[in-house]
Amino acid sequence: MNHLERIWLMQTPSRMGPAWREAFARACEDRGWAFAVHERGEPAPPPDPSRSQLTVSWLDWFEGQPVTRFYVQRGTADDSPDILARAGDLGPSEALYEGSLRLAAAELMLQNGADLIDMNDEVVTLQGLGDVSRPCEIAVSQLGSDHPLALYKSAPLKTGDSIRWPPRVFSYPGLAAAPEDGRIELLGRRRMLFNGPNIFLPPGRWRLDAEFSINPPARTELLIEWGFGEGARSLSVVIEHPGRYSVSLEQEWTRVAAADFRISLMIPALAGHLDFHGAVVTRIGDYVAPAAPVLEDAAGA
């Protein structure tokens, strides 16, 4: 039996994605390959037992699926929220959440050795299938440096890549909308003042640098947290004087997970306010998985 290729190609959401899938499907039909599309939440398409197969996915690969080569095909990063908002009737924050999930999952696949191809390439070459020409050219907007997903402007990510998240992309419980200036009145019970932006990051070591100004009515206690889930890094601080403060926290992402930075008021306040000035997130290194334990013969037998 001839060698069968099992290609898994993950696409990040893009205006050009559907046209590329049609081009891949035609190329497979012309060259005797099987073609499949995997949608999120659906079972993984089974491999064709008699033909090579190309599977195009919008998310990650299923462990146990036989694959001979992985590819990631990326469009312009700021396409992602727009495409997902239209396809899934999502609001801006939900679309940003989903778009960053797809981009972080693609980054993880690149970290694990997938080959990178671009939606704007004139021709892409897939192992065994050969050349597939770009089906069309669709104008897409360029990603601005102030976009919440600007971290993903290029791939793969490198140590030192960073993104500034302004106050407007965070969530403020109890407020109808995010304040443009990041001002939060402290009056009230102990509570979370803000959190977010819940944008996904891939595995790696990440540092957050944030600044805020505070005018407390008296002695005030804050809990500052950065990370994801129960493993978030936390810092408890007591503030007795008005001023502008900075904080720097480092955390290791062991998997694709949503980044959450939050500040909570830990004692009730009768007056005062806090101005959040935004945060900068920087990739400071790779995630290194712990080595597997090795059993050695202490007697040297």
Score class of each variant (00 low, 15 high):
156 P>T: 10
224 I>V: 15
198 N>K: 03
103 L>Y: 05
127 Q>M: 13
226 W>Y: 15
198 N>Q: 10
67 V>H: 04
276 F>C: 07
66 P>T: 06
72 V>H: 04
16 M>F: 01
221 E>L: 05
240 E>D: 12
195 N>R: 09
197 P>N: 11
189 R>T: 11
52 S>T: 04
147 H>Q: 04
276 F>Y: 14
269 A>V: 01
202 P>E: 12
266 M>P: 00
244 R>P: 00
185 E>S: 09
160 G>Q: 11
124 V>C: 14
166 P>A: 15
62 F>Y: 07
96 L>Y: 01
146 D>R: 10
280 V>W: 02
5 E>Q: 12
271 A>S: 15
155 A>Y: 11
40 R>A: 12
174 G>F: 10
22 E>G: 10
205 R>D: 12
53 Q>F: 00
21 R>W: 03
87 A>M: 12
238 V>W: 01
25 A>W: 01
208 L>G: 06
73 Q>S: 10
275 D>W: 00
225 E>Y: 00
74 R>N: 02
158 K>A: 14
176 A>C: 00
116 L>F: 09
122 E>K: 13
275 D>L: 09
300 G>M: 08
200 F>I: 03
117 I>K: 09
141 S>L: 08
48 D>A: 12
186 L>I: 10
222 L>G: 05
6 R>F: 13
277 H>R: 15
290 P>C: 01
18 P>T: 05
196 G>L: 04
73 Q>D: 07
143 L>M: 14
81 P>V: 01
20 W>T: 03
